[in-house]
Amino acid sequence: MGEGQRLIGIEEVAEVFEKSVESIRKYKNYGILKVADKIGNKDLFHREDAIAKKSVIKEMQVQRGLSLSQIAMELESREAQAMDGPEKLLIVEDEEATRETWTEFFENAGYHVVQAGDGQEALEVARTERPSLVLLDLRLPKLDGYQVCQRLKGDPLTSDTPIIMITAFLTGASDTVRGIEYGADDYLNKPVDLDVLAARVRMVLRRATHR
């Protein structure tokens, strides 16, 4: 193993980044820096990886103003793209301003995004584009989110596609039970914090890969 590949502890990583150990722990917890090995309770990192990511993370934080959650999401997407191409998200939302805001957010994080503005269009786009995950609003024209979810889960082409249902109206236990019965993988209520949404997307995608 060459000098650039050697393993270093978190204190040395902090020196590379010229940041506090606590900052590096946050990078680790978000998955921005990955633990390469452990000795007892001591985390070890690849020195080369830390050096390579220093400038990338600085650019994302300072120049682009991304949060740690967004940085983690973009790095994860870049790794996936290098192997299999970018993850594709289908955003189903009838409010254009919300749809465009979410699209810009996820595209900046390295995802490929396709859109639908009503339930019928969502079914058509899902079948032709085969997204990795669907962000599905509940209240939609033509077909509501429950109907879309039920039909996607009942179609062999899309039955394995994870769905996160998002709505301002999902307030009762009966709504949650109904969504689960139709196959939704997760839920969020509006207004949506985009960092929370990003974390849920990563979680559901990871869970889907281990099915």
Rank of each mutant, 00 (worst) to 15 (best):
W102H: 13
A52C: 01
G117K: 07
A72G: 12
V114Q: 03
I57L: 10
V62C: 00
L44T: 03
T101R: 11
A97C: 00
L89A: 06
A50F: 01
D84R: 13
I57S: 05
R64N: 11
E93P: 12
F106T: 08
R47D: 05
K42M: 11
R47A: 13
D94P: 08
E95C: 10
T98W: 01
A50N: 00
L66Q: 13
S77M: 12
A36Q: 05
E104A: 14
H112D: 13
D84G: 06
E76N: 14
E87F: 11
S67M: 08
I91N: 05
A97W: 02
H46V: 09
D84Q: 12
E76K: 13
I51Q: 09
G40S: 09
E59Q: 15
N41Y: 07
A116C: 07
A82C: 04
R47F: 14
E79Y: 06
S69E: 13
E74C: 12
R47Q: 10
I57F: 06
A80I: 08
V92S: 02
E107R: 15
T98R: 08
L89G: 06
Q61N: 05
E48N: 13
I39V: 14
D94M: 08
D84S: 13
Q70D: 07
V114H: 04
T101A: 15
S67K: 08
M83R: 14
E95L: 06
F105T: 13
K88L: 11
E95Y: 07
T103F: 02
G65E: 02
A52P: 00
E93L: 08
G40Y: 01
L44R: 00
V114D: 05
V56D: 03
E93Y: 06
R64G: 06
S69K: 09
S69V: 14
L44G: 05
F105E: 10
T98H: 11
S77E: 14
G117V: 07
I51W: 02
T98S: 15
H46E: 06
T103C: 13
V62E: 14
A97G: 04
L75V: 03
N41P: 05
Q70P: 04
S55I: 08
E100I: 14
A109S: 15
K58Y: 09
A82V: 01
G117T: 03
I51D: 01
R99Y: 07
A36N: 02
M73N: 10
V92Q: 02
L66K: 14
K53W: 00
E74H: 07
A80Q: 12
G40N: 04
A80G: 09
A116S: 11
P86S: 08
H46N: 10
E107F: 04
S77I: 00
G85W: 04
V92D: 02
